[in-house]
Design a protein around this nucleic acid. Structure first.
Length: 118
DNA sequence: AGACTGACCAAAG
DNA sequence: GCTTTGGCCAGTC
C-alpha cells in the first residue's frame, strides 16, 4: 500500500524545461524568451521563461543563457553576469556580432524551437 | 510558513 | 502613439 505515489506525473518543473530547450540552442544562433515560452505551450507568461533563465544557476547542468535574448534581440540579461560584458563577449566568441547591446542580424540568427525542433 | 522579487510580451485605454 | 495592466513560476529572506 503505497501512501499515494508521492511522484507526480512530471516532477519536471517549468524551469527545467526552459533550461533544457536553452541547451538545445546551437552555437552561433540565438533564441528569445517568447519563442521558448510558445514552444513549451502557449504563452505561460514569457515572463516565467525569463525567471527560468535567471534561475539558470539553480539548474544541475550548464545553461547557455547568453544565447537567449528578448524579442528585440537585446541582451537584457547582461547585467546578471559576472561582468556586463560577459554575455556580449560570449556571443561574439561564437561569431555573433553585438552592437549597443543588440544582436546584429538578429532575424537571421534567430532560432525558433517551434520551427527548428518542430 | 508567508511575502517579495525577478532576464518578458502583447493587448487595451 | 505612448503608457499601463494583466498573466505567470520558483527561489530566497
Amino acid at each position: 500500500m503505497k501512501p499515494a505515489a508521492p511522484k507526480p506525473a512530471e516532477p519536471r518543473n517549468f524551469f527545467q524545461d526552459v533550461h533544457e530547450v536553452a541547451r538545445l540552442i546551437p552555437p552561433g544562433r540565438v533564441s528569445t524568451y517568447g519563442a521558448i515560452a510558445h514552444y513549451l505551450g502557449s504563452r505561460r507568461g514569457a515572463r516565467t521563461v525569463g525567471y527560468a533563465m535567471m534561475a539558470a544557476h539553480t539548474a544541475d547542468h550548464y545553461v547557455p543563457a547568453h544565447r537567449v535574448v528578448n524579442r528585440l534581440g537585446q541582451l537584457t540579461g547582461r547585467l546578471h553576469y559576472a561582468t556586463p560584458f560577459a554575455m556580449q563577449e560570449a556571443l561574439e566568441a561564437e561569431g555573433i556580432r553585438v552592437e549597443e547591446d543588440q544582436v546584429v542580424d538578429f532575424a537571421k540568427l534567430f532560432w525558433d524551437p517551434s520551427t527548428e525542433l518542430a
